[in-house]
Design a protein around this nucleic acid. Sequence first.
DNA 1: GCGTTTCTATACTGGGCGGTATAGAAGATA
DNA 2: TATCTTCTATACCGCCCAGTATAGAAACGC
Lengths: 224, 224
Amino acid sequence: MAAKGFSAEGAGFLRRTHYVPTIMKACCSAKGRPREFCADTALAAALRVFWSKGYEGASLTDLTEAMGITRPSLYAAFGNKEALFKMALDLYEREKLDYIGEALKEPTARKVAEHLLRSALEMQMSNSDPKGCMGVINAVACGAEAESIRAEVIHRGRVAKQGLIDRFERAKAEGDLPPDTDAVGLTSYLTAIMQGLAVQGGAGASCQDLKALIDTSLAMWPEA
Amino acid sequence: MAAKGFSAEGAGFLRRTHYVPTIMKACCSAKGRPREFCADTALAAALRVFWSKGYEGASLTDLTEAMGITRPSLYAAFGNKEALFKMALDLYEREKLDYIGEALKEPTARKVAEHLLRSALEMQMSNSDPKGCMGVINAVACGAEAESIRAEVIHRGRVAKQGLIDRFERAKAEGDLPPDTDAVGLTSYLTAIMQGLAVQGGAGASCQDLKALIDTSLAMWPEA
DNA sequence: GCGTTTCTATACTGGGCGGTATAGAAGATA
DNA sequence: TATCTTCTATACCGCCCAGTATAGAAACGC
């Protein structure tokens, strides 16, 4: 409602504040005192906070403490909380979901599924990253304030899902999947397993439980 | 932290306030002015709010407006927000998750799974209830304030899951499932699908997408 | 009718939220 | 060194949150 930040069309806030968030500037502007913190490092810290607490659960105090910067620095560098979240989401997709793109390159539908599930499992079992999944956490997010965030996350999810649908359609065309296969249904199914994995991981399931989940899922897949 | 409500041990708040939440009294106490609203109806309204917004996303204003009562009435009748949530959760399990108990009575493991998935799908496609799943929404909940809520929801989920594990163990003993079946893994797998269904339902997936998800899941199950 | 009890309505408290104004410190150019 | 730019630090704003004190109205037993 009062979300008149710059993230919507991007231009509004430029008229309201006297400088541009420096993260958006050309990477090295020579003038003036340089920033004392590393924007990338700070963004990575912000990602961890959003990842473990969700958009609404992450307060600015949580964020600034984790990032090691003050509130005005955050606003100067990233715009506002919403914009910071979206940048963190970009980072997340780039660094943590790159296995999806890799999986699509596998030669058969089953190998795609196997790559996806095993990678998702691996990520969920990592103990250097927060549990759960940014997407699931925030697609299920609660409050009204986060509606735009929810929409963004859901949109990105749909895009990723479409890539998988296309891949399975191709598999059908290549005779790799039976011609009467429902590619959309298969994608929803595979996605559901990964979402369930994230939910259970976020709820504190043990690594062996998660592994059993994925092993069972792969045992279900035909032509094992 | 300041959660010194009555839900923990139940006795604390009795010393702090001069009357007992009337919902906990014997159902008809003759004395005094009777309550003007129906506690059950109000609780059902509260459930819908918690269901669609989550624990933290539901403000007292949301709740009292939906329930048609004032703030002090809510506190008098239900104790506090946390206690209200747990009562709503009881109602949810009793009225909306009764199909789980029914499913366990099916004669074969596959029929159990089929009953579960079809019922979950039906619930998700209902347009008289909120989308998503109380459990998933709140097990993934964000804030620190909701930690006790999260724990409660997760605990209830574990109990339900155990029932399913036992059922599959029985199926193994009856020769209905192969003896080398991983009952825990199978349960986690089935649970994951239902969680994924709820996530996708909550994220606005169409009914036909959800149906395709379940149909594909059932097609995967052996001995179709 | 009375007196008691328990309801409701209003208005308030302290605290945390997202976001910002202001002022001073520090690096860069010259 | 002088000046300018852009950083940082502190303290603040209005808003909404969960929860409550107070006071008045309504229904019961007698």
